[in-house]
Design a protein around this nucleic acid. Structure first.
Lengths: 212, 212
DNA sequence: GTCTATAGGACGATAGAC
DNA sequence: GTCTATCGTCCTATAGAC
């Protein structure tokens, strides 16, 4: 299965020049999505925003869904990076989980377009490629490892690192994020009614898996 | 501001005949949304599904957004009805809250199209009319009243019926619903990883506002 | 890697006959 | 309340010159 993300994986490979052009295109795509909705991105609009003609875009992306996939993939990478930056320097275990989850929640709030694309299913024909999903799998694996550490250190009850525990934690986490995106996407982290209560997420998760 | 929902509020008013035709049109619209995504409904597709010509549809709805609004409004009414049916016969207070919330969660899972339309923002140009939103306001008012009863009966700590309490409860509730819709919309209530853990929602809400 | 030209549709909506 | 005919617009994508 060839890459869906970019056109011409044949000769020009990836020069820094090409890379930064692609980034610029994706930046514009996100701006458009913020304007007209995540499902409102079209090649024509994207070309207009870049001051080029629509056919020129096909040198960079083979289809409009490939653009969606590239935005999705970049979003997943950024979300994973936010998670890792958030837990950097924290002791492994519960503290790292709390810091990392909070960081990804904050990333979602500051990147509502990408968050909608990642966490909802708003674009009719679009299914993210496996490659684009890979960072999400990494994040879950790392999260699960930290939950295991928290359990082994007696910070959480056994089961917090099970599939059930992840379900509970994801529900709590995405409950806040999803309500924020749906009801007050313009609000900043400190001002949002839902985000202001994010601290409860981790408190309630601990309440669900209380240490002995 | 005139009704956005249906065309011609002038002469034919609302006969049972007309009413059932409108219902049938909305049923088809929901089927299409299930097929091609909530944002994929068009007048052309809807007409095709009804075996009529697109212009004929404009005798029933003045625009495609009016169709969206009508589906939205019907969904809000159905959700409110599910809430009320769920708490019927339960004693006022915490037990009613639990029964009612569970019923609306189950309604959302069995009506994923309407739920996406109600609880996310998936259609670019669409903003629900105030009339269509009204049932949601009623539901919140009734929920808040039952939370107040629960507090006054010592089933929940004071504050459970405050704006903050509603935020926490909504996050917990829509966290499960939203994760289900995004990740396993095909799964039945009893089989879904998230819905199977719905009971924790109310447990955790009680944990957040524990009775004295 | 940019362009012009263009094929080929889909779409929202209106006019007007029946 | 259904239809045909139609306007004007937007869209994806390709061919091929430069």
């Amino acid at each position: 299965m060839g890459s869906v993300t970019t056109a011409g994986s044949r000769s020009p490979r990836r020069t820094p020049r090409r890379e930064s052009t692609l980034e610029a295109i994706l930046d514009r795509a996100v701006e458009i999505m913020a304007d007209v909705g995540v499902a409102g991105l079209t090649m024509t609009r994207l070309a207009r925003a870049l001051s080029i003609q629509p056919p020129s875009l096909y040198k960079w992306f083979p289809s409009v869904l490939a653009v969606h996939d590239a935005v999705f993939a970049r979003g997943q990478r950024a979300n994973l990076a936010a998670w890792r930056a958030g837990l950097e320097g924290r002791p492994a275990g519960l503290e790292a989980v709390v810091a990392g989850m909070t960081a990804t929640a904050q990333w979602a709030v500051t990147h509502p377009v990408e968050a909608q694309l990642l966490f909802w299913r708003p674009v009719p024909g679009f299914r993210p490629s496996a490659a684009a999903m890979a960072p999400a799998d990494e994040l879950v694996a790392e999260l699960r490892e930290h939950l295991g550490t928290a359990v082994s250190r007696g910070q959480l009850a056994p089961g917090a690192d099970s599939a059930d525990g992840l379900v509970v934690l994801a529900s709590l986490h995405f409950g806040v994020v999803s309500q924020h995106l749906a009801n007050e996407p313009e609000a900043a982290w400190a001002d949002g009614a839902y985000t202001r209560s994010y601290g409860r997420v981790t408190e309630l998760f601990v309440a669900a898996y209380p240490p002995a």
